[in-house]
């Protein structure tokens, strides 16, 4: 039987079906408000308290563990259908606190605070001595790799010129000696073959984003870049998306792996997300 602490809240089992429903709703809310990096999925419900609210309603106070998926937040794929980033890919964990009001059968997230941290290098090395490890976005190899990849992509592309929007992930790979990156680009109003001054190219009003994966391999006598991009088909926004609260303010805590990204915080560095109410 649930423990009634007499302190105004009730302890409930973390695996209680309604608690799980609230936790999944809170992670959906998080993914709808993440502005950078990759979407997350629920991994574990750490703690839950059920507060009785006067005159009506209850508040779920949740502590959740999440894991990063391989889908960027701009990817329309539902996070539940995305692969969870594995330990050998240098996984990233999220620690989130949520306060969710349940009233008249409706759930409202009115507080959300999340930090993300990459797994330790030791954990990755234990399973895979030659797998890549996350590195800061301002690492010179990262900057060079992204530039080489984007230049190559635009050169191969006889249509729109694409600009860099965000570096989302960067790994230093020991074998073969290389740097691999994932980044977001957006179409501009320039033609790729006629660009003289990229600064004069503007993003399209109807944003058209693409997600690229690239690597720069060090070879005898030089280096070889490979890049592949896919565009994110614009998805019609669900009606509920318009009821979101004020745009979340994301303030960057001190990066755990010093991934201070010039373009945007990576999901590999702790970022805290404070958001307004949303039904």
């Amino acid at each position: 039987a649930p423990h009634n602490t007499g302190l105004g809240f009730k302890e409930v089992a973390c695996d209680d079906p309604e608690v799980e429903q609230v936790a999944l709703l809170a992670v959906d809310y998080l993914n709808q408000h993440l502005l950078h990096g990759f979407s997350h999925v629920l991994n574990r419900i750490d703690k839950v308290k059920l507060w009785f609210r006067r005159p009506v309603g209850v508040v779920y106070e949740l502590e959740l563990d999440t894991l990063e998926t391989t889908c960027h937040v701009l990817d329309p794929t539902p996070p539940a259908n995305c692969s969870v980033r594995q330990v050998t890919e240098h996984a990233v964990e999220g620690d989130c606190d949520f306060h969710v009001l349940k009233q008249d059968g409706k759930f409202t997230v009115f507080h959300s605070q999340c930090h993300s941290n990459p797994d330790s290098a030791e954990d990755v090395r234990k399973l895979c001595p030659n797998c890549g490890l996350l590195i800061p976005f301002n690492d010179t190899n990262v900057v060079r790799t992204v530039k080489a990849a984007l230049d190559t992509f635009n050169a191969q592309n006889n249509g729109t010129y694409f600009k860099l929007v965000e570096i989302s992930r960067a790994l230093n790979v020991p074998l073969p000696v290389s740097t691999s990156v994932e980044f977001v680009v957006a179409a501009t109003d320039c033609n790729a073959q006629e660009v003289t001054d990229p600064a004069k190219c503007n993003l399209l009003a109807e944003k058209q984003y693409g997600f690229c994966k690239a690597s720069l391999v060090q070879k005898l006598g030089g280096e070889e870049v490979s890049v592949a991009c896919k565009d994110f088909q614009k998805q019609p926004q669900p009606a509920s998306a318009n009821t979101a609260g004020p745009a979340p303010a994301v303030d960057q805590a001190a990066p755990a792996v010093d991934q201070a990204a010039p373009a945007a915080p990576s999901a590999g560095s702790p970022a805290s997300l404070v958001v307004g109410p949303m039904v």
């Binding site: 649930p2 423990h3 302890e11 409930v12 089992a13 973390c14 695996d15 608690v19 799980e20 999925v41 629920l42 991994n43 574990r44 419900i45 750490d46 703690k47 839950v48 894991l67 969870v84 594995q86 330990v87 996984a91 964990e93 797994d119 954990d123």
Partner: peptide, 27 residues
């Protein structure tokens, strides 16, 4: 300690309410 017949046996250890189950893997 011999439990007399008819006495309710001592309740076994109560499973902790939290943390819940791990759905993927623990970092």
């Amino acid at each position: 300690k011999v439990v007399q017949p008819g006495m309710a046996g001592a309740a076994g250890p109560v499973a902790p309410l939290c943390p819940g189950r791990v759905r993927h893997f623990k970092i």
